[in-house]
Write a protein that binds this DNA or RNA. Structure first.
Length: 920
RNA sequence: GCGCACGUGGCGUAAUUGGUAGCCGCGCCAGACUUAGGAUCUGGUGUCUUGCGACGUGUAGGUUCGAGUCCUAUCGUGCGCACCA
């Protein structure tokens, strides 16, 4: 019978479902393995063929691990909160929950057709109250915690309060928004609300006036990773800087642990590098510059302590608190005008313009090493959010300072021997110091490296400053002025934020009359009726951002129905953390930082047992679209084939790829596609209309979306699975091209045909050739799966099928082994084979075979014989032959004389099993 | 500008990790069969050359008996970060 993918696949999918084959339980008798996919946001467009790529790879790996005897946790769920559903709600008035549920149903139907081994009994949805209860709970824990720098971990805020009551701020080192010093008496004399206000400075989830990325079009603030080049990642709208009171997470407190933790992880170098970049550790010094005639010291951060002798001015960020303190009466109008100008520029305008601008404050600072007076300026090239928001400018050795100095005619003092600073600054950290001698410190003649070390030491000893490490990583802004997200378990009493009682969780998302902000610009939740506590205190009207729900979902899968805890101790101790995490690299600086932070926080408080959530991470590449084009001759309704288009003046037009096969246009379908093409004429080449193509993002508007459902319908899920893997290395981005799918489909038909003709009742032994073919396959596939090289294992299957085909193998044992190793890749056909072979139970539990190395050993080995590295002829030697024997064989070959041409070899290299190279 | 990854047939790719470059598949060519298909099967297919053979992994060097693989320079592509002092 022919290979009927529809019948086989429907039948076994139903069997898996009704027998709950993929449900797993904690089982202490088996080693665990946790394979996780990044859960999808269920968009309205449904799945395209790129989405399942990672899921197929992880499914293969899970099935492989399960066959190897591991207890595999392989769950799936939905990241259900998100902007698109809300934008759709604004346009249509339809509740985002309704849209989301419909999309989820569609996703599920599409996923089911592909034959994944997900344990759907553990499904989570971030918008489900049973799930977001724990998101809210985690927020409460963060609110009630601070990060203790001395202990290097999060601690209950009560511990901090106790300390303040006894000793004030002395003797404790909490991560804080601002360093504040106070005594126990001062603390104890504060009112309750004042105390709460001060504690906000230390909480891990805190509320603060911070400069945020405000997106007017989206009506909400965005986190740094949601903004790229001054535009919102979603929608591409301009983003401006705005000072707002927002909830934040003190991610920055974890910067060093997030950085150091990377060393232990089995992630790709590029992804680790991206995270290192984002965290941005830099070691330098914080230094004080006394302001002349004022009782103020300017604090700055620098990594180039060696260049203090070259400081010719100081610069403050416009938002810096120093600006007000240092502006003199006569400079005030100019400074105010400048601040006003800067305020109206968006981040994007600042970046694009890159125009040098600034204003003098009227004050001078004193260089602590030279005693010289230097002017203090304000300019927007200095960032308020990094370091202290003030810098010492060394125009000779920093290109930004250089541009500023040239623009405003400030002096440039070179500090490095041979550095020519007449045209540009010399930024490299190398060379020998000059012009660097003061009354106390002499750096002349030292290398830059030595000078940095010596200066750091000196400023610490002289009390001018201290050695400090700064991070680029900022705290995450955690409020969104949006509807479709988790409500905060927070209410306000006299304007002060308080947590709800834990028993109030989950705090359900209320209904609103409209999803738009209120007339007064309040978020949509302000419209909700009765959005107060029982006592009538108003509840928080912001919601949490998208990353809130995705930060701990992997923990919830371990124990998804527990309503007493995020995850029980027992379940967490068994499953621990994710062994293999698969997803896109686009989450490198968002989700993958946030969830590491979130997990470390829960670890500090003892709620989870592992410090890092994802041990091994593999990024699957993006699948791009392959758009097909036809070429209309301008002013006509005639279309010219790709190869002939240069002879005409043409307009390329995108055509739906469903009408194109192997780049050949179905002209009839094209005529029917659009009324205006009904009477289209074609200029063909070789009787065909050939389309051009371009690689673009896969999207409806490009007419290049390929739906997995269509592939499954036509070729079957097993073919889709194999083909997605066959396309190329998993981690590589590549365009989807359905051309070529026939190859893998042919393989399945072929192996099916061979299997159907096999003698399944016989128990005869395999022949030597059969043994060799099947053991070669097992060996290759086993190592390929471990190395995530799925494309090469598909090739190995095809080779094996070709070999078994030419052997006309009908041996039952061969197909028994074949079905086992095919099972992770093409589970439906493997299941069918497995049952026809007479096995009970599912092929998911078929033991993974070990290969038999002895079957692969050859009697004789072929050696290429090279002369000076060029291969000239082949010899065949017994496998057991010694080097000398092989050498003798090579020289006694009939060809040897010709290539030696009478000369005596100078040297002969024999690599056993590989090559003979004769040097003459 | 900085960081990371990568350049191999007409195309997607492979190469036991320094040892016969081009496995497997698509496409293409030839043939077989046939109820003429978007089917199946067989053989061929890096370039040049009638052939012997020569050349060939972006380019130019280097190390080595031997380089797609290692080193140096250079060009090109993709991704990430980007006024982070």
């Amino acid at each position: 019978m022919e290979y009927n993918h529809r019948e086989i696949e429907n039948r076994w999918q139903e069997y898996w479902r009704s027998n709950r084959i993929y449900e797993v339980k904690e089982d202490s008798t088996k080693p665990k393995y946790y394979v996780l996919d990044m859960f999808p946001y269920p968009s309205g467009a449904g799945l395209h063929v790129g989405h399942p790529l990672g899921y197929i790879a992880s499914d293969i790996y899970s099935r492989f691990k399960r066959q190897q005897g591991f207890n595999v946790l392989h769950p799936m769920g939905y990241d259900a909160y998100g902007l698109p559903a809300e934008q759709y709600a604004i346009q249509t008035g339809q509740h985002p929950e309704k849209t989301t549920m419909e999309n989820i149903a569609r996703y599920r139907a599409q996923l089911d057709k592909i034959g994944f081994s997900f344990d759907w009994s553990r499904e989570v949805r971030t918008c489900d109250p049973g799930f977001y209860k724990w998101t809210q709970w985690a927020f409460m824990q963060m609110f009630n915690s601070y990060y203790d720098r001395t202990l290097g971990k999060a601690m209950p805020i009560s511990h901090l309060v106790e300390h303040f009551e006894k000793h004030g701020s002395e003797g404790i080192n909490p991560a804080a928004s601002k360093d504040i010093e106070f005594t126990a008496e001062e603390w104890n004399s504060l009112s309750d609300d004042e105390k709460l206000g001060r504690l906000m400075n230390y909480r891990i989830a805190y509320q603060g006036e911070t400069m945020v990325n405000w997106c007017p079009q989206l009506g909400t603030v965005l986190a740094n990773d949601e903004v790229s080049e001054g535009l919102s990642v979603r929608g591409g709208y301009p983003v401006e800087q705005k000072l707002m009171n927002q909830w934040c997470l003190r991610v920055s407190a974890y910067a060093s642990r997030l950085l150091d933790g990377l060393d232990k992880l089995d992630w790709s170098d590029s992804l680790k590098e991206t995270q290192r970049n984002w965290i941005g550790r830099s070691e330098g010094a914080e230094m004080k510059f006394q302001v002349a005639d004022k009782d103020i010291a300017l604090e700055i951060f620098t990594t180039r302590a060696d260049t203090v002798f070259g400081v010719t001015f100081m610069v403050l960020a416009p938002e810096s608190a120093y600006v007000d303190m240092l502006t003199t009466a006569e400079q005030k109008p100019a400074v105010d005008a400048y601040l006003e100008e800067v305020k109206h520029k968006t981040e994007r305008e600042r970046q694009i313009e890159k125009k040098v601008s600034g204003v003098f404050t009227g004050s001078y600072a004193i260089n602590p090493l030279t005693g010289e007076k230097i002017p203090v300026w304000v300019s927007d090239y200095v960032l308020a959010g990094y370091g202290t928001g003030a810098i010492m400018a060394v125009p000779a050795h920093d290109s930004r300072d250089y541009a500023f100095a040239r623009h405003f005619n400030l002096p440039v003092i070179p500090l490095i021997e041979g550095a020519d600073v007449s045209e540009q600054s010399f930024d490299a950290k190398e060379g020998i110091m000059i012009n660097s001698k003061g009354p106390e410190l002499d750096l002349n003649g030292l290398t830059v490296k030595e000078a940095i070390a010596k200066t750091k030491k000196y400023i610490e000893e002289a009390g001018l400053g201290k050695v400090k490490t700064n991070y680029r990583l900022r705290d995450a802004i955690f409020s969104r002025q949006r509807y479709w997200g988790e409500p905060f378990p927070v209410y306000y009493k006299d304007g002060v934020a308080h947590l709800l009682d834990e028993s109030a969780l989950p705090l359900l998302l209320p209904e609103v009359s409209s999803y738009l902000p209120t007339e007064s610009g309040q978020p949509p939740l302000a419209r909700a009726e009765g959005w107060t506590t029982a006592e009538g205190y108003p509840l928080e009207v912001c919601t949490m951002p998208g990353f809130a729900g995705s930060s701990a979902y992997y923990l919830r899968y371990m124990d998804p129905h527990n309503d007493k805890a995020l995850v029980s101790k027992e379940a967490n101790e068994y499953w621990r953390n994710v062994d293999l995490y698969l997803g896109g690299a686009e989450h490198a600086t968002g989700h993958l930082i946030y969830s590491r932070f979130w997990n470390k926080f829960l670890y500090d408080l003892g709620y989870v047992v592992e410090d890092e959530p994802f041990k091994r991470l593999v990024n699957q590449g993006m699948i791009q679209g392959r758009t097909s084009f036809v070429y209309r001759i301008k002013g006509t309704n005639t279309f010219v084939s790709h190869g002939l288009r240069d002879q005409y003046d043409v307009t390329p037009i995108r055509v739906d790829i469903s009408m194109v096969r192997n780049d050949q246009l179905d002209t009839e379908a094209f005529r029917k596609w659009r009324p205006e093409f009904a009477d289209a004429e074609f200029i063909l080449e070789d009787g065909k209309y050939i389309c051009g193509y371009a690689v673009e993002k896969m999207s409806k508007s490009m007419f290049n979306v390929v739906n997995p459902d269509d592939i499954v319908e036509r070729y079957g899920a097993d073919t889709l699975r194999l083909y997605e893997m066959f396309l190329g290395p998993l981690e590589q981005s590549k365009p989807w091209d359905t051309n070529g799918i026939d190859g893998v489909n042919r393989f399945l038909k072929k192996i099916w045909g061979l299997f159907e003709r096999a003698d399944l009742d016989s128990d005869k032994e395999m022949t030597k050739e059969e043994k060799k073919a099947i053991n070669k396959l097992i060996k290759k596939v086993t190592s390929d799966i471990q190395g995530f090289s799925f494309n090469t294992s598909i090739a190995a299957f095809m080779i094996a099928a070709n070999e078994l085909g030419s052997l006309k193998s009908d041996n039952r044992k061969v197909y028994d082994l074949f079905a086992r190793v095919l099972a992770p890749f093409a589970p439906h056909i493997a299941e069918e084979m497995w049952h026809r072979l007479g096995h009970d139970g599912s092929v998911v539990d078929a033991e993974w075979p070990a290969h038999d190395e002895s079957a692969l050993v050859e009697d004789t080995v072929k050696y290429p014989v090279s002369f000076n590295g060029k291969t000239r002829y082949m010899i065949e030697a017994p496998a057991a032959a010694s080097k000398e024997d092989v050498e003798a064989l090579a020289l006694s070959d009939a060809n040897a004389e010709k290539w030696l041409a009478g000369k005596t070899p100078r040297k002969i290299i024999v690599v056993p099993g590989r090559i003979v190279n004769i040097v003459i």
